[in-house]
């Protein structure tokens, strides 16, 4: 799986939370790889473990109660999970940067936005304060903020949500990271701004050739922007594929269900379909394939109820975890 085109590969990573009520297996045996200068989308319902996956890559899991219990995360030839705290700090913000869901609260209210960008720049690059401030204004211009020389000295509370998210992006890309993790970067914004922000990410990707891990539950966004997609369900990845192939021919029943629930132009007369049932609680996962209680294909199959399928390659470039997928067999 490791070749020159791969920037990050996540191999069999499991992250558990050891709480008083029991062990929450938030991420189980997750594997995928992100190619250079490509956008990789991670989709799934709320609570399926997308953010925990992202935080595991950054080694930001709060410990205790959380712990990455197994696997490797190889980034630029190094296993991030074996780095010392000091080494991982040099990766964070510098090689891998992250933007969060909530732009209203992601900036420190007591410092000007310029101060915060400058701090990020000077942390990883040797620059004088003056140069760093010039850079900060330049980055703000790059993310499409008008009048950046003025804006650098404003406080976050003087900006709108969309603008703050742009500032967050400016902070994240100020050190030209190779991987940008965007955890639902547009969920908190209104629709027109959402498109602008995503366009901006595309633009920046073209300019500096970084890879993007885009976490979202908006399949429309995925179809438009992502090169590769991983679908997550109840802490496991159930399907990984090239985005076009996935949308053309979803293999896993869950993915099929998700696509059916996607509104499409021209089909508005019909009611949107939903997947019946709810996402299982990570403390009480069902046995066997976790999707079987909601699955229309294998809900009564003994094998689905007792043995959990692993993610397998069923044909070139198509990985899926379902007993019923064509070409699937346990090796």
């Amino acid at each position: 799986m490791n070749d020159n085109q791969t920037l990050l590969s996540v191999e069999n990573v499991s992250t558990h939370f050891f709480t008083e009520d029991g062990v929450a297996r938030a991420v189980q045996d997750v594997s995928f790889s992100i190619k250079k200068a490509k956008t990789f989308a991670l989709v799934g319902e709320s609570g399926c473990g997308k953010s925990v996956t992202a935080l595991s890559i950054m080694r930001l899991i709060p410990t205790p109660p959380g712990q990455i219990v197994g696997g490797n995360i190889v980034f630029e030839g190094r296993n991030l999970l074996t780095l010392s705290e000091k080494q991982i700090r040099q990766v964070r913000g510098n090689r891998i940067a992250m933007i969060f869901q909530e732009p209203m609260t992601s900036l420190n209210p007591v410092y000007t936005v310029g101060n915060q960008i400058v701090e990020a720049i000077r942390l990883h690059q040797k620059k004088s304060i003056r140069d760093a401030w010039k850079d900060a204004a330049e980055t703000l211009r790059k993310v499409g903020i008008a009048d950046p020389e003025q804006r650098v000295s404003e406080y976050p509370h003087q900006m709108s949500g969309g603008m703050r998210q742009r500032v967050m992006i400016a902070m994240a890309v100020s050190c030209e990271p190779r991987l940008l993790i965007a955890d639902e970067p547009t969920t908190a914004l209104d629709v027109t701004i959402q498109a602008q922000i995503l366009d901006l990410l595309d633009e920046l990707q073209k300019q500096n050739g970084m890879s993007i891990l885009l976490i979202t539950h908006d399949l429309g966004v995925v179809a438009e922007r992502a090169d590769d997609v991983a679908v997550m369900y109840a802490s496991r990845i159930v399907e990984v594929a090239d985005s076009q192939k996935l949308f053309a021919e979803p293999l896993h029943p869950y993915t099929q269900g998700l696509l059916k629930s996607l509104p499409r132009l021209g089909l508005s007369a019909k009611r949107l379909q939903t997947i019946s049932g709810t996402v299982p609680d990570p403390l009480h996962f069902p046995g066997g394939c976790k999707f079987h209680p909601r699955c229309c294909v294998g809900c009564s199959d003994k094998r689905c109820q007792t043995v959990e399928p692993r993610l397998m390659e069923v044909r070139s470039g198509r990985h899926v975890a379902c007993w019923y997928a064509k070409g699937y067999e346990e090796k």
Binding site: M58, L60, R89, Q90, G93, T105, S106, E119, A120
Partner: peptide, 24 residues
Amino acid sequence: DFVQAAVSLGLPLRSILFRHMLPN
């Protein structure tokens, strides 16, 4: 979130505790 964001920028603990959290 802004503390999480500060950690994700790779700031050292000292800076997170006393520069970012303390003034707030």
